[in-house]
């Protein structure tokens, strides 16, 4: 009799414990399902953020690579172009240096001296030139009263350097100086022949 009562009690306790355990497990399951459900949007957000950040980073790196490559290519093109322009220049300068001094050249010298006297605002001038042009300049100077030939020769492709006799003013009208003044425009012309800057 006593045994039966004890068994009943034990079985009741077992039943209650089982119920409580099952209920606990169920609530834990529900809770974890809820947590899982709640975390899905957060995870999705996180996922989207990681993807967006990754895309941003990829775009940044793409820009960097393309930018550097573009710059490098452009720089190489610039150097190649400059080489070509320099070659054209040096060839042109050679040709100018070897130009025949007869014919129209004396007219060019005359124009250069006229230009210089006009700019200096005086006809009391001293004219210097290179050894090659000395004769042409000397003969042209006879047309300019107040002008005299300087004893010093200068190193240039051609043309004249004109000074006022008091030495206060000087005008460089050599071919070298004229080329230097017009160099940016000449470079542009040459570059346009290579299809740049058109």
């Amino acid at each position: 009799m006593a045994n039966s009562a004890l068994e009943t009690t034990i079985s009741k306790i077992l039943e209650q414990t089982e119920k409580s355990v099952i209920s606990n497990v169920e609530s834990a399951l529900n809770e974890s399902l809820k947590t899982l459900d709640d975390s899905v949007p957060k995870l999705e957000q996180e996922y989207d953020k990681i993807i967006a950040d990754g895309k941003k980073e990829a775009d940044k790196i793409e820009k960097q690579i393309i930018g550097s490559a573009d710059i490098e290519a452009r720089n190489k093109q610039l150097i190649a172009l400059e080489d070509a322009v320099s070659k054209v220049f040096s060839k042109a300068l050679d040709q100018i240096a070897n130009t025949d001094r007869s014919g129209d050249y004396s007219n060019l010298i005359k124009t250069m001296i006229e230009e210089a006297t006009k700019i200096l605002g005086t006809s009391e001038i001293s004219v210097s030139t290179n050894a090659k042009d000395k004769d042409v300049v000397q003969s042209t100077l006879s047309q300019f009263s107040g002008a005299e030939m300087s004893s010093e020769t200068i190193d240039c492709l051609g043309g004249v350097v004109v000074k006022s006799k008091d030495g206060a003013m000087r005008f460089d009208n050599t071919i070298d100086a004229r080329i230097e003044r017009l160099k940016p425009l000449i470079r542009k012309e040459i570059a346009s022949k290579f299809g740049v800057g058109e």
Binding site: L120, M169, F171, N173, R181, P184
Partner: peptide, 11 residues
């Protein structure tokens, strides 16, 4: 650009 200007003064 022209050949105007270019006078050098030494005073």
């Amino acid at each position: 650009m022209t050949a105007e200007g270019g006078v050098q003064y030494s005073k």
